[in-house]
Amino acid sequence: MKWLLVIAGAMVGAPLRYLTDRTVQSRHDSLFPWGTFTVNIVGCLVLGLLTGMVTAKAVSSEVQLLVGPGLCGALSTYSTFSYETLRLAEDGARFYAAANIAASVVAGLGAAFTGTALAQAVWG
């Protein structure tokens, strides 16, 4: 029955992704996919925080399933990142495509490390 926890997390993560993406993107008049970038970085931060909490044994395996593959799995979106990057390159916006790749990798890893470090500082 643990799979129900993943479903419950995804039921929150998917609409949160959509609403966040639309809200953020509507505030930017740019080709850069700010909405997808935002949800992916937030997902990395939350997953890093969760990882640190799991390491410190501050959360149960049930919370790990709910938040990890459930919430974060539905909140963040590698497929949309890939699609939007490909579309930018095909439409001639190669700078934005490259910036999206570089910024997503650097900020995503930075957010994951920050979340893990924060959890270790609080619960470690």
Rank of each mutant, 00 (worst) to 15 (best):
V46Y: 05
L109D: 00
L31A: 14
T85V: 03
V106Y: 02
F113H: 11
P69M: 12
G110C: 02
S76W: 07
I101H: 01
P33C: 05
S30T: 13
A14P: 09
A112Q: 08
L65A: 09
A103V: 13
G35F: 06
T85E: 02
G110W: 05
T55V: 11
G108D: 06
V106R: 00
L118R: 05
D29E: 14
A112H: 03
V67N: 10
D21C: 08
L16D: 00
R87H: 11
K57E: 15
V105D: 01
L31W: 04
A102L: 15
Q120V: 01
V42D: 04
N100F: 02
S61C: 01
V63A: 15
P15Q: 13
G110E: 05
S61G: 15
S104Q: 06
C44Y: 03
L16C: 14
E90I: 09
A99Q: 09
G48C: 05
G70N: 06
G124H: 05
V24S: 02
L109S: 00
T85W: 01
L88H: 02
L45M: 09
M11T: 05
A58I: 08
L88Q: 03
A111Y: 12
A14E: 08
D29R: 14
L4M: 13
K57Y: 13
P15A: 13
G73H: 05
L118D: 05
T20D: 08
V59L: 08
A14K: 04
S30C: 07
L118M: 15
V59F: 10
T36G: 03
P15G: 14
L31E: 11
T38N: 10
T38L: 08
A8H: 02
V42E: 04
S61P: 11
T55I: 11
V39I: 15
V24L: 04
W123V: 00
P69H: 06
A8F: 11
W123T: 01
G73N: 07
T116M: 15
A99S: 12
S60L: 07
Y96K: 05
A103W: 13
V6D: 06
R87A: 13
M53H: 06
V42G: 01
Y96F: 14
L86T: 13
F37G: 00
A89T: 09
T80S: 03
L86S: 11
G68Y: 05
S76E: 11
V59P: 08
G73Y: 06
T77C: 10
Y83C: 03
A74T: 06
V67Y: 08
L109R: 00
G70M: 07
T80W: 03
A119C: 08
V54L: 15
A107R: 03
I7W: 13
A89N: 10
I101M: 12
I7L: 15
G48I: 04
F32I: 06
K2F: 12
E84Q: 15
A10E: 00
L50R: 09
L66A: 05
H28C: 11
T23S: 10
L75S: 12
S61H: 14
G13F: 07
A14W: 06
A119K: 07
S79I: 03
T51F: 15
S26M: 07
E62L: 02
G43I: 07
M11Y: 01
V122Q: 10
V59I: 10
M11S: 12
